[in-house]
Structures are given as C-alpha cells and as structure tokens.
Design a binder for these strands. Structure first.
Lengths: 347, 347
DNA sequence: TTGAAAGCGCTAACAC
DNA sequence: GTGTTAGCGCTTTCAA
C-alpha cells in the first residue's frame, strides 16, 4: 500500500501538494507540470487512497449501511443487495450489511454501523411493507428499499405492484384467455392490494369485466390446494395470474390432475419470488421477475446522490429489460419499478 | 461520539491511561481505583471505541470481507451471509460483502476490500464447487464457504452431500418405500456426486439394493418432465429423493397426472434449495434444508479464530437441529454440515 | 504556487 | 504507576 508520503518523497514535493493534486483541488493552486509529475508517480506506484485514514479527517467513509430484517433475508435479499453493491462499487462505495431480528438487535446494529462511520443507510423490509424508520437514523441520509415509509417523508424504492398485475393480466387477455383467475395471497400486504387492483383494472378495461368469483386468495398447504381445486371445479379458468411460485405450484398440480397441460390447455403468468420458475418452467409459463436487482441499484444511486449532494451519473445505471427512467431525469423521491418479463404466454 | 480524550479530561488522567484501562491492559500498570474511575466515566459517557481510528495504528479493522460469485447470489447466499454476520456480530466484527462476475471484477473488488483493511476473507462459491483462491489473498486468513479448495490447503465449510443423501434415502426406506428413485442433476457438480453416492450407499445397506434404472438425472423443462414421466411409466417408484425443489416439481406433476397424491400414495424427500418447500408443501413431503446459516456461522467462527490466533468461544455457537461439533472441540480445518430436517415422511 | 504544521481518535514506546 | 511523545494516512488551514 503506497502512501501519499511516498509519492511526495519520490516526486520531491510535500504531502499537502500531493493531497491537493490527487483530490483534484490543484487548479490554479499547483503548477500544471508539478501536478502532472505527481499524478505520474501516483499511477507508477499504483497509489490507492486509504479511505479509513481519510475518514478520520473528513468523517466520510464511503461506507453504506444496509439494514434488513433477518426473517426475510433468504429468498429476496440477494438480488437487492447485489444491485446495491454494484452501484456502490461503481461510485467507489462499500456496503456493510447487517440483519436484525426486527426489534431488539436493531438499535445495537445501528450503533455498530455508526461507529464504523457509515455515510448513509438503506432500510429494507424485503417484501414491500409499511415501515417506521427508527429515530436513531434521523440525522443520516436514509433510503427505504422494498418498503414504504410510514410517515411518507423518506425516499423509497418499491416494486410497482399494480403495474405488475396489470401487465400480467393484460398478457393473459391478449393470449385469448376467457376466464382469467387470480391466485393471490390471503395475508394482508401491500403487494396483494396492489396486484388485486391491477388485475381488476386490466379486466375492467375489457369486455371480460371483473368477476370476484375468479379471485382465490390462499395461504399455503392443503387448504390452498383445495381452494384452487375448487376454483377449477366451479369456474374452470383457462388463465391464471399467480401471486408467486408457491401458489403457481397448486395450479400446476390441479391442472395435471385433470389431464390439462400448462402452456397448452391453460396459461399461467406468475411472479417468480423464489427463482424456481426461471430455472425450471420458463417455456411453459410467463415469468414475472421482480426487479430486485434494479431496486437495489437505484436505491444506492439515490442514497449516494443524497450523501454527495449532487445528482449521480445515470449513464452508469445498469442495463435491464425493464423500463428505465430517462437518462436525464432527476432521481425522484419515490421510484417504482415495473416488471421484468421473461418467457412468453403459451397458447 | 465520546472520545478517549473526553474521558481523560473528565477523569483527570491522560489519554494513555484511559487507553490502557479500556483495553484491559491495566493490571499491575494502573492503580485499581483510578482504573475504576476511568471505567465509570466511560460508561457514564457511553463511550464506544472508534474502530477506524484504532485500525490506523493497529492495522486491524475487525472487518471481514465476504467474496461471492454474482451469478449464484440469489437463492443460496442469503442464509450463509446471515450466519456469517451473526457470528461476526457476536465477536464484534463487521462484514463487507462484495460480489464478482467470476473473473474480471474479482481482483478489483479484492483490492478495494484490502484498502478498507479487512482482517480476513471468506471465499464462497454458493454451491460447493472446486475453487482456486486467487493468489492476491495468499497472505490473508481465508476460509472457503460452500466451496472446496483446489489445492486442499485452506480451511473450508461445506455441506456433507453424502450424508444428506444417505439420511434422506434412509428415511424413505424406513417409511417402507419399495422402489426408491433418485431424481438428480445431470450437470457435473460435487453435490450430485456426493448425493448419488449417499443414495446408493443407503440402498446397498438393505435388501433393496441399488438399481441404476431408478436414477434419473435431469436438467430442466420439458426434457426433465418427460424423463420423470418415463421413470413413472417404467418403474412406478413409490419413493423419491429429489435433488432440489425444481426437480420435485416434476415429480409432483407426474404424480398428479396419475391421480396419485404425494404424502399418501408416494413419498418425496427433497432438498429445499429455493425455500419453496418450507413455505408451501412441508406437510406433504420431508424437507431437507441445507445448513446455509450454520455454514456461514461456522465459517466466521473459524476465520475469526484464525485472525485472533486463538480458539473462539464455541458456547456462543448457534443452536440448531443439525449435529453441532462438541463445544470443547477445536475447530477443524474442514467442517462438514449434515442436513437439517423438517416435516416428516408421509405414509 | 508551495510547504509546514496541526489534528482526526487511537496505540505504544519510552520517560519520569 | 502515569504521562509525554510520536505517529498511523490523510486533509486543511495558514504562512511563506
């Protein structure tokens, strides 16, 4: 690890000059040729600044703290954190992730993160829930990810549940399905509300109309399977929009029992929460992939722009199949991610 | 953030005395009552050491670097990282996780981690593969997680694939299954080799014997479904050990088409890679949950013990249903995690 | 236009 | 036993 001191000695100048040059504060302060020589030796020696030493003076560490709930970390977190990391890395930041058990450990993890001097926080709930950000974060930049601020005052990045359901249902309509069912979630959550609304809106715009009998909100296991089975018996749907892969599983099983083949006799569009669709069944159904990666990426861009007090370079945003905001758009307080589509509706 | 200087002033001693006391180096150096007063003001003021400033002198940051491959981050990584974080947190460490695209970005991520002064590295492949640790890590403590060192010289934590399959198959035997099939993975990977061997060994220990015709290694989609279908047609198995949830899905669909119910007419034991089993189908089948959390936890314990040059307090290890090493055992170079079982074999 | 010097919070020789 | 001093790598007045 080469230091500024070494560069100073090798170039025959002082450390302060080196600091000035390497921090691009040399215009009109350091003679151009000196500056050039400093830059040269810096690259020769492969100089990289020591962010920790720097932070001692500036109290800016270029470290971001990512707070997530333990309980939900497994299936969804990966993509979000990955996206946040990629963005952070692009802008020269690092991510320290901590997970809390929801209550007790949260404050101590926050305290630890503060001790490490993080510049800002992500606060994540891993499945779009209303969240109250602890007051201990109130004098730091904070961005919510996959969560909505209870006070509606902090910026957040969330999936656009309505649009996801609207688009998915529209695909089934376009595919010519006559009786389109929604296998939803009987737990009370934002995603369920938004998706039901999107499903309904898509159908009401056509001569299908919305029929509450085709909505089947289930939880899991035997009861869920029997509910879907009953739906088949009574209304024999030929199109299904499924809340997630677990629920799609029941549709598959019911169809198979009737000798029906998904992708031929009926169409299924499902949200791939667990990445089983993508790895296994894509040709048979349309996968709606939640834009976890993009959510993390955009959240990081937003957080960094708040920390640095200037807009980030959006040309560095990731390529994706989902609609990106226009390049020159300011980063809005709330970002809604629409769906990413793979595969195609069969039939 | 109170500093040592403040404590020193408030107590009327020098900073070095404070440092001595607060680092527990005061025995026989600082008068007990002075030491006591220092400790008192420290707690009064809610003092927490600044790990970054400390690291400037000691070049120990209590930060651990977790390197994982981007491609595989989503389904498996969460639990491992969570476990590593919990262990790190217990011992006062923090985790910085970075993900690489396998090649190009790896060295730059490692360089960044070094700049932040990490004390050691996790090197993870997220599905037990042979890995060559880059030489840039060679003078740091390194522990492999869900990966095996190509040179067989570094410590690693891996799932015990053989035991997983052996135990799973044994459950099916105990449940009275007559024709036990293995729906495996046709890709070449360590898990597949170990599991096939375990399945075989379990059967060879009984009068069932091993029958290669009951092994069905598949990839995915239509071909996979048809292969499983053919297996049903030819051998009509009544017990299935499935490589993962994706493969179990095919068994479910084939069974349903025949009017058979899993958990009644046939038994399925599957490895829950995507956490769909646990959330959806547990009563119907036996879930083999890979011990991701434990792997992360143990890897962190091992890494920290290498960094600190002393055995860690294993009484702080997490409770789990899987067999834990005895509390007073030294941490071995290689740790094999056996399976965690949930649900029960139906029938 | 450049450099000397102080200091961020902490540790560790070395005096006293 | 305790305090003084120096210094980790860097930024930032302030003089020259």
């Amino acid at each position: 690890m080469t230091t500024m001191k070494e560069i100073a000695e090798k170039t025959g100048v002082s450390v302060s000059t080196v600091s000035l040059v390497l921090n691009k504060r040399d215009v009109g302060r350091v003679k151009p040729d000196i500056a050039q020589r400093v830059r040269q030796t810096a690259t020769d020696l492969g100089y990289k600044p020591n962010p920790l030493a720097r932070s001692l003076r500036t109290s800016k560490t270029r470290i971001l703290g990512f707070i997530s709930e333990e309980v939900a970390t497994t299936p969804y977190a990966g993509g979000i954190i990955l996206g946040a990391q990629d963005a952070a890395s692009t802008y020269g930041y690092m991510l320290i992730t901590v997970s809390t058990d929801g209550q007790a450990s949260e404050e101590s993890e926050i305290a630890a993160l503060k001790r490490y001097g993080v510049d800002g926080f992500f606060y994540s709930k891993m499945s779009n829930r209303i969240a109250t950000v602890p007051k201990s974060l109130s004098d730091y930049p904070v961005v919510l990810v996959d969560a909505t601020d209870a006070n509606n005052t902090l910026p957040s990045v969330e999936p656009d549940e309505f649009q996801i359901a609207y688009d998915a249902t529209s695909r089934l309509i376009e595919a010519g399905c006559e009786r389109i069912a929604y296998v939803g979630c009987s737990e009370n959550m934002i995603a369920q509300d938004g998706r039901l609304a999107g499903y309904r809106a898509a159908l009401e715009g056509t001569d299908h109309g919305f029929d509450a009998s085709l909505v089947c909100n289930v939880l899991n296991n035997g009861p869920a399977l029997r509910a879907v089975d009953a739906l088949f018996n009574t209304y024999n749907p030929d199109g299904f929009f499924c809340f997630n892969d677990a629920r799609a599983w029941y549709v598959y099983e019911c169809a198979a029992r009737r000798g029906l083949t998904v992708g031929k006799d009926l169409s299924v569009v499902g949200v791939d929460n667990h990445r089983v669709f993508a790895e296994t069944l894509e040709p048979q159904l349309t996968t709606v992939e939640l834009p976890h990666y993009e959510m993390g990426y955009w959240a990081a861009c937003k957080l960094i722009s708040m920390i640095e007090g200037k807009p980030v370079d959006t040309t560095k945003w990731p390529r994706t199949t989902s609609p990106l905001p226009p390049l020159d758009a300011p980063i809005p307080a709330k970002i809604h991610c629409a769906l990413i589509e793979k595969g195609s509706v069969a039939r």
